[in-house]
Amino acid sequence: SQTQRTQDENEARRIAEEWKRRGYDVEVRNRNGHWEVTWD
């Protein structure tokens, strides 16, 4: 799996939607004030 971090929730949601469209299983988490998008 791969993880991308961002400070911006909207960006995190956009990234998550992009990977979901490509057929990946995606998880979005808030950790210590930043957002992590993990896909595999």
Rank of each mutant, 00 (worst) to 15 (best):
V26A: 07
W35G: 00
R13E: 05
R5M: 11
E11V: 07
A16V: 04
N32R: 05
R13P: 00
T38K: 08
D25W: 12
I15V: 07
R31S: 10
K20L: 14
S1T: 12
E27P: 00
Q4F: 15
G33T: 06
T38N: 07
D40M: 15
S1K: 14
E36N: 02
R14M: 08
N30E: 14
V37L: 05
V37T: 02
S1Y: 12
A16F: 05
E18C: 15
R21A: 14
T3A: 08
E9Y: 12
D25S: 09
R29M: 10
R31G: 06
R14K: 10
V28T: 03
E11S: 07
R5Q: 11
R29W: 05
G23W: 01
A12N: 00
G23Q: 01
W35Q: 00
A12F: 01
R14F: 05
Y24G: 03
I15D: 01
A12E: 01
T6Q: 04
G23L: 01
E17P: 02
R14E: 06
N10A: 14
E17R: 05
R21I: 08
A16S: 04
R13T: 05
W19E: 05
E36P: 00
T3V: 13
G23P: 00
W35P: 00
N30R: 12
N10D: 13
A12L: 03
N30A: 10
V28M: 05
Q7F: 12
G33I: 01
R5L: 11
W19I: 13
R5I: 15
R13N: 08
H34P: 01
S1W: 14
T6G: 05
R31C: 15
W39N: 03
V28A: 02
V26E: 00
Q7D: 12
E36R: 01
V26N: 01
R21Q: 14
G23N: 02
E36K: 01
N30L: 15
N30I: 13
Q4G: 05
R21D: 15
Q7P: 10
Y24E: 02
Q2I: 12
V28P: 01
D40R: 15
E17D: 12
N10Y: 11
E18N: 06
D40W: 15
H34G: 09
V37N: 01
E36Q: 03
E27S: 11
R5V: 14
G33Y: 02
D40Y: 15
E27M: 09
T38W: 11
W19G: 12
W39E: 02
Q7W: 11
W35R: 00
R22S: 07
R22K: 13
E11A: 07
I15S: 02
Q4V: 15
W35S: 00
I15F: 04
Q2D: 07
W39P: 04
V28N: 00
K20W: 13
W19Y: 14
W19L: 15
E27I: 14
R21H: 11
S1H: 12
R22Q: 12
A16W: 04
T3H: 09
E18T: 04
G23I: 00
G33Q: 03
D40V: 15
G33D: 07
R5T: 11
A12S: 03
V28H: 00
E27F: 06
E36W: 07
E18P: 00
K20T: 09
V26K: 01
I15H: 02
R14A: 10
H34M: 15
R22H: 09
R29C: 10
K20A: 12
R13L: 10
D8A: 05
R14V: 08
D40K: 15
W39K: 06
T6F: 15
E17S: 05
R5G: 06
W39Y: 09
I15T: 03
R21C: 15
R29E: 07
V26F: 02
T6N: 04
W39G: 03
W19M: 15
W39T: 07
H34S: 11
D8V: 03
E27Q: 13
G33N: 06
W19V: 09
W39V: 11
T38H: 10
Q7A: 12
W19F: 13
E36F: 07
E36G: 01
G23V: 00
V37Y: 01
Y24H: 06
W35C: 02
I15N: 01
T6S: 07
R31N: 13
N32P: 02
W19P: 02
V26T: 06
Y24W: 06
R29K: 11
R14I: 07
T6W: 09
V28S: 01
R21V: 10
Q2P: 08
H34T: 14
R13F: 09
N10I: 10
V26D: 00
R22A: 11
N30F: 15
A16E: 09
R29P: 00
N10F: 11
R21K: 15
D8G: 06
D8F: 07
R14C: 12
K20S: 09
V28D: 00
Q2K: 13
R14D: 05
R29N: 09
E17M: 05
D8M: 05
K20V: 10
R14T: 07
A12W: 02
N10Q: 13
T38F: 13
E27T: 13
R5S: 10
V26P: 04
T38R: 10
I15R: 03
E27L: 09
E11R: 05
A16G: 06
R13K: 10
E11K: 04
E17I: 04
R31L: 14
W19H: 09
R13S: 03
A12H: 01
T3I: 12
Q7T: 13
T38D: 04
R31D: 09
T3M: 13
D25T: 11
Q7S: 12
N32V: 04
T3Q: 08
